[in-house]
Each structure stands twice: as structure tokens, then as C-alpha cells.
């Protein structure tokens, strides 16, 4: 039965999620903002420009993919928010991240179920790369 308790439980879940998000997004946003004022982000951007161009993304978007894959989706989101990207670029990188994120943690989960780690990781990264390339061409 839906009561006021249901709504309270939902609100509590929501607040917990927002706190979890905040703990990751705010430091990542701050970190990248600081990087923006150093030469580091410019260097990363230059190095990754040839690779990221395949997905229609600027070089500095590599930071989003690295943080999202090594930490979690929320870290990737914090990084997206701190960069200046177009709507098309945000959609492309969001699809790529949704296929491939939190690799250390989620691979541990799939291992528990008994699926091959190498297969899982290569499938996810493969899907991210292919979807990025295709989306860049079609949207």
C-alpha cells in the first residue's frame, strides 16, 4: 500500500543518491576547473585530440572517459559538467559512458556471477567505441 511512509522512503533514497553523487561530482568538478587554469588540461587536450576526433569529441573529453571508467559514472558526469561541450558531444559521450563505466567495480560484480572478465571489459569498451563512432556520423 502506498502511504506517506513510501514517499518518505523514496525521498530518503533520493537524498542518499544525491549525497553519493555530490561526494564525487563536486571534487571532480573542482579538480578539472583547477586543471583548466594550468597547462595540464591543454596538454591532455592536445595529446588526445587525434583519438577523440574519431568520436567527434574535443581532446579534453578524454578526461571524462578516463574518470568515468576508472571511478564511476558520477565522476564522468562531474567531468562533463565542468567542460564546455555541445549538446551533440554530451549525447555521444553519455552513450559511450553508459556502455563503459566503473570498470573495476562492475567487473568484480560480473566475476561474481561467473562471466569472463576479459570478455566483459572488451565488450563494454568495444560497444563504447563503436557507438561513439557511429553516433558522431549520424547525429
Amino acid at each position: 500500500m502506498v502511504t506517506i511512509e513510501t514517499v518518505k522512503r523514496g525521498a530518503k533514497n533520493g537524498i542518499n543518491t544525491v549525497l553519493e553523487l555530490g561526494k564525487v561530482i563536486i571534487p571532480v568538478y573542482l579538480f578539472i576547473t583547477i586543471l583548466k587554469y594550468t597547462v595540464i588540461l591543454e596538454l591532455i587536450s592536445k595529446w588526445f585530440q587525434p583519438l577523440m576526433k574519431i568520436f567527434g569529441l574535443p581532446g579534453e573529453a578524454a578526461v571524462v572517459l578516463v574518470l568515468g571508467n576508472l571511478l564511476n559514472l558520477y565522476a564522468g558526469i562531474g567531468a562533463i559538467a565542468s567542460l564546455t561541450l555541445t549538446a551533440k558531444q554530451i549525447t555521444i559521450i553519455a552513450v559511450m559512458l553508459s556502455f563503459s563505466h566503473s570498470l573495476p567495480v562492475e567487473t568484480a560484480v560480473s566475476k561474481k556471477v561467473g562471466v569472463s572478465v576479459l570478455a566483459v571489459v572488451s565488450t563494454r569498451i568495444g560497444l563504447a567505441a563503436v557507438s561513439g563512432i557511429i553516433l558522431n556520423l549520424v547525429i
Partner: peptide, 11 residues
């Protein structure tokens, strides 16, 4: 300030 405010706004 820019980094913290931007992060809080996104959240």
C-alpha cells in the same frame, strides 16, 4: 569559488 559553485550547481 568557480570550481565549488559549478560543482554544487550541477549536483
Amino acid at each position: 569559488e568557480e570550481g565549488l559553485l559549478g560543482g554544487i550547481k550541477s549536483v
